[in-house]
């Protein structure tokens, strides 16, 4: 079970429940195939550095998960087939990357508490 991280951009024209449905589709894909979701981050609507499919903004979502290597191909086919997703990138994480992602999550949660508290 390798450690992976996938970032994907969905078109901004989606309504919010459509957006959650598309994201949910991939989370179900992970559960169904024995994967394990480590963390999920929504960066919300961000400005793209260059227009993709004539759109200048997009919903960014980051999911970090563990899964068997053979299933990555099928996951990426799912991403390609989904027309709501403009662009995606799955990356394998080595041990330094996993440690970095851990620290990043703590930093974000600490920052989040600061703004809340």
């Amino acid at each position: 079970m390798n450690h992976y991280e996938a970032v994907f951009i969905t078109t901004p024209v989606l309504s919010s429940d459509e957006y959650t449905r598309t994201v949910k589709k991939y989370l179900d894909f992970l559960e169904k195939n024995g994967g394990e979701l480590v963390s999920k981050e929504d960066w919300g609507i961000k400005q793209l550095a260059y227009p993709i499919q004539k759109k200048t903004t997009g919903f960014y979502t980051l999911i970090e998960f563990k899964i068997d290597p053979q299933l990555i191909r099928r996951l990426e086919i799912e991403f390609k087939r989904d027309e709501n997703i403009m662009r995606f990138l799955t990356v394998k994480l080595d041990k330094y990357a996993v440690k970095y992602a851990q620290q990043r999550k703590e930093k974000l949660s600490k920052k989040f508490e600061k703004t809340e508290g």
Binding site: I9, A49, Y50
Partner: peptide, 13 residues
């Protein structure tokens, strides 16, 4: 190059 692919960084600016 990955950041450019994800439109975090521009290819040409």
């Amino acid at each position: 190059k990955r950041a450019r692919h994800l439109a975090i960084l521009p290819y040409v600016a």
